[in-house]
Simulated assay, not measured.
Amino acid sequence: MIVKLGANRYGKAETRLVHVLRDGPVHHVKDVNVSTSLSGDMEAAHLTGDNSAVLPTDTQKNTVYAFARQYGVGQIEEFALRLARHFVATQPSIRHARVTIEEYGWNRAGPHSFVRDGGEVRTCVVHHDEDGRSTVLSGLRELVVLNSTGSEFHGYITDEYTTLQPTTDRILATAVTARWRHTAPEASSYAKSYEEVRRCLIDAFAGTHSLSLQQTLYAMGERALTTCPEICEVRLSMPNRHHFAVDLSPFGLDNENEVFHAADRPYGLIEGGVLRDDAPDAGFAWE
């Protein structure tokens, strides 16, 4: 039997960084979580313990902080690109860098006072390799949305274990995780693109009379792609946050879809991608 080393990568996960840009009396805050992951000539490190090709994860963490001081953070996609390109360009043993960033929003309450935003988390994943190819995936998670009507579910497979009743009027609720791939990294205005894609996802969710969450997922991806020419692919993960009408008949009360129990688990999980027919191959696994 022959045993060999498979695909591998290593890095520093979840470097918490808060950067304060002091623009006179008015300050600006960037609150991010940065994870770096590197791959390349790592056979010796795994097979013999020779670390001569390894850039320590502590160094990767320090680079994040140093770059924030030298260049600021700005748009998270730009910051991730700068880090990824640095690791590949400066270390001959590193052939591919993956940088993921989550950004946590703060709402201004004064020139230097802020209140943490309880909404969705903005995300990005950047890949850069030794051939100079960069790919940027922007995204968001925990975008919680709900339609109180305009959703149906019927016509599905039934067997001896089916108890679910068909419905023509139900609550549809989910917490959207979405990622979208930019056609050309430098061609996008990331802040504008983020706001536009986010708006498209919400508008399509709200405006689609849904016969299934799958149908809604496709409508959301399609809206983003047809509105935003700078992106070529959207991938969505959408748990079905089930709401069950409570039986109030023991108390002599009716319930015409007004009082619900919101169940947290188990839940249906709907995932899928929507892409342009001319979208270039990503060249890597999204995960």
Rank of each mutant, 00 (worst) to 15 (best):
V115G: 00
T48R: 13
R98A: 06
R133E: 05
R69Y: 00
Y161L: 14
A80F: 06
I157Q: 12
E102W: 01
Q75D: 13
Y161H: 15
M42C: 04
G74E: 04
H127A: 00
A89R: 12
V88K: 05
D50V: 09
M42K: 03
A44F: 05
Q91V: 10
R85I: 03
L143C: 04
Q75P: 09
A89N: 12
A109P: 01
N51E: 01
V88R: 05
D41T: 13
G118P: 00
L172M: 12
H127R: 03
T57Q: 08
S113I: 09
H128C: 07
G74K: 08
R69T: 00
A66E: 09
T149I: 05
S113E: 11
Q165C: 10
E160H: 12
V125M: 14
V176D: 01
G132V: 08
L83V: 07
E103A: 15
T158D: 09
L164N: 11
T63P: 00
T36G: 04
H86Y: 15
E130C: 08
R98Y: 02
T63E: 05
S35D: 02
A109E: 10
E78D: 15
V73M: 08
T168Y: 08
E142K: 15
L38R: 03
V73Q: 05
L146V: 13
W106Q: 04
V99M: 07
G40E: 08
R95M: 06
E78G: 15
V115I: 12
T90F: 11
T174F: 01
I157C: 07
V126C: 04
T174M: 05
N51D: 04
L140R: 03
V136Q: 04
